[in-house]
């Protein structure tokens, strides 16, 4: 019996089941972007240092460049495309990012949103120091982070009040 270099992967991404046959070495970020055409997830370093590719795997933020697509078989994934409501209404954190000008080029934004959405679920009333610690695994080269911190502090009570 040999292990094949290609496998069938079935995942639920943003609530939609998808099955593809992929090479076992395919990274989850490439699977999402190029197999499922969910290009909102960005790739910045492919060695786990920048956080741009962060997605939720069974609800928890992970680096999709440090996860194999085959490892997502049978699991649920949420990407940035899954944040806004189906009618296009922005998630409260997305709306806060816009209000506070928390993004410039927007390339790191998806990974940061996915990190912070999970953070806020666990820490509904964070202080600035906690927000900065939660952000520390995501690199942004444009903003200096200050407006992102503002966005989280703006969104937190709105989310908690929902």
């Amino acid at each position: 019996m040999t292990a094949p270099k290609a496998r069938s992967v079935t995942t639920t991404v943003n609530g939609v089941r998808a099955t593809r046959t992929v090479e076992t070495r395919l990274l989850l970020c490439d699977f999402l972007r190029h197999e499922l055409d969910l290009t909102g997830t960005r790739v910045g370093c492919e060695h786990g240092a920048c956080g741009a590719c962060t997605v939720l795997l069974d609800g928890l933020p992970v680096r999709s460049c440090l996860t194999l697509a085959v490892q997502a078989d049978g699991h649920a994934i949420t990407t940035v495309e899954g944040l806004a409501a189906s009618d296009g209404t922005l998630h409260p954190l997305q709306a806060a990012f816009r209000e506070t000008h928390a993004l410039q080029c927007g390339y790191c934004t998806a990974g940061i949103l996915m990190t912070l959405v999970a953070f806020l679920a666990e820490h509904p009333t964070p202080n600035e120091a906690e927000v900065r610690a939660a952000l520390s695994g995501n690199l942004c080269r444009c903003t200096g982070y200050q407006h992102m911190v503002d966005a989280v502090l703006l969104a937190a009570p709105r989310l908690a009040g929902k």
């Binding site: 969910l38 290009t39 909102g40 997830t41 960005r42 990407t79 940035v80 495309e81 944040l83 806004a84 296009g88 922005l90 997305q94 990012f97 816009r98 209000e99 000008h101 993004l103 927007g106 390339y107 934004t109 998806a110 949103l113």
Partner: peptide, 15 residues
């Protein structure tokens, strides 16, 4: 607030 943000925030911008 920025015109481009909605596209960037929802992952629809073309890079």
């Amino acid at each position: 607030t920025r015109n481009e943000d909605a596209r960037l925030l929802t992952g629809r911008a073309l890079f």
